[in-house]
Write a protein that binds this DNA or RNA. Structure first.
Ligand code: ZN
Length: 387
DNA sequence: CGCGTTTGACCCGCGC
DNA sequence: GCGCGGGTCAAACGCG
């Protein structure tokens, strides 16, 4: 009898706790919905504006602010509405001044700008030179010559997202499985750069580069390139699409300027068009204590669906936070990240979730996105798998 | 022994 | 044409 009473108390407490969480979730969903609406409205208005890029436009970095935003379909963002095409002379001067401010070797200031189309944009990492601000320096490799536009444009179809994280905050693991295939010392950074390929599917073209910041080795800059050819975990999705799903905070002379206000993913995505190409940098180094760090290791990993020895285990992988694995909080973050990654899905999901939250106790079970099965990379030589 | 990582070699594009 | 630098390859290595 006494034990039943205790059990009853526990159950009531649990119900209360779940109710509280439900309330929190409801408010989060509402806020996310309003943000989604705002973003979509914003995008719609931007898309309706006439493009200021024409076929002959070579030097107009302000127009290069147009970026690839993947909201299920690809749309274009003109990141600076105020800069019209009529002001190019003035803007050119600004750019020249900015480049001077960068104190780069003269050869590196020689920039060729490729034209960009709505679905044809490249978001570059500028992780070389890697100062601890959001990388803005032009990268030699990323300079695109005027010649060979078709090739460059084909290459530009690759989506590139740069992510800046603190290593001690689960920065390296992002819900995807990676195999390291190279490491290089780079000219402008005493710390090596690591090269990873997606190991979930042999044919998946996605690569990522990981480099620690020279001035603050705890900061890791991760650059993702390409789109997964397979379904990925919501976390990977969130990272790969975070440039569009996170609100943007501007810096530099031509950035999308929206105050970041995200309680669940402490990420500031910076879209910088001050350098050669627009850059999306996801700043996960935010230390605001009230905001839990992004749990980049999805909860399903705790069920042993991944190999213990992640490819990241030797370097960046040591940052995975085992203490919080599998707890409810991280699950919620994963879940929210996945929702944020797909705004089109958000509205429909939120209605369904809203209903289910009112009826059910568990707000998460049954609505987690489907994962691909963990793949053992056991098909012979790891190198040959990508030959 | 299998698998992932390491690391020197190689390739390629670019600037001079 | 040459040198430099970044990216990739692949044999060697190490770990479980
Ligand atoms: Zn992949």
């Amino acid at each position: 009898m006494e034990s039943q009473k205790i059990q009853m108390t526990l159950v009531v407490a649990e119900i209360n706790r779940v109710n509280e969480e439900n309330k929190k979730l409801m408010s989060v969903l509402k806020s996310m919905n309003s943000k989604c609406k705002y973003l979509q409205k914003h995008i719609t208005s931007l898309v309706q504006q006439p493009k200021c890029i024409d076929e002959n436009e070579i030097f107009n970095p302000l127009c290069l602010g147009s970026m690839n935003v993947d909201f299920g379909r690809e749309v274009s963002l003109q990141s600076d509405q105020s800069s019209s095409c009529n002001e190019r002379g003035e803007e050119k001067e600004k750019i020249a001044k900015f480049m001077d401010d960068l104190k780069l070797p003269s050869k590196k200031r020689k920039i060729n700008y490729m034209q960009l189309e709505q679905t044809d944009n490249e978001i570059t990492p500028s992780m070389d030179e890697s100062p601890c601000h959001h990388g803005q320096s032009p990268n030699k490799k990323l300079q695109v010559p005027n010649k060979g536009f078709s090739e460059q444009r084909a290459a530009a179809k690759k989506r590139i997202v740069a992510e800046r994280t603190r290593s001690e905050k689960s920065a390296g693991s992002d819900g995807c499985q990676w195999r390291k295939y190279g490491q290089k010392m780079t000219r402008n950074n005493p710390l090596p750069r690591s090269y990873y390929k997606c190991a979930w599917a042999p044919a998946c073209p996605v690569k990522k580069q990981v480099q620690r910041c020279a001035q603050d080795p705890t900061i890791v800059i991760t650059t993702y390139e390409g789109e997964h050819t397979h379904s990925v975990s919501p976390l990977a999705m969130a990272v790969m699409h975070a440039g569009s799903s996170n609100q943007l905070i501007g810096e530099g002379m031509n950035t999308e300027n929206v105050v970041a206000d995200n309680q669940f993913i402490p990420c500031i995505a910076t879209v910088s068009t001050s350098s050669t190409f627009p850059t999306i940098t996801l700043d996960l180094t935010d230390d605001r204590p009230s905001r839990p760090s992004l749990q980049l290791q999805p909860p399903h990993l705790t069920a042993g669906r991944f190999q213990q020895s992640s490819p990241l285990s030797s370097d960046m992988g040591q940052v995975s936070d085992h203490n919080e694995r599998g707890n409810y909080s991280s699950m919620m973050q994963d879940y929210l990240a996945s929702i944020k990654a797909d705004p089109n899905f958000t509205a429909a999901l939120s209605v369904a979730i809203e209903g289910s939250l009112l009826e059910m106790g568990d707000p998460v079970r049954g609505i987690m996105p489907k994962f691909p099965p963990a793949r053992q990379c056991a098909n012979g030589s790891s190198q040959k798998a990508f030959a």
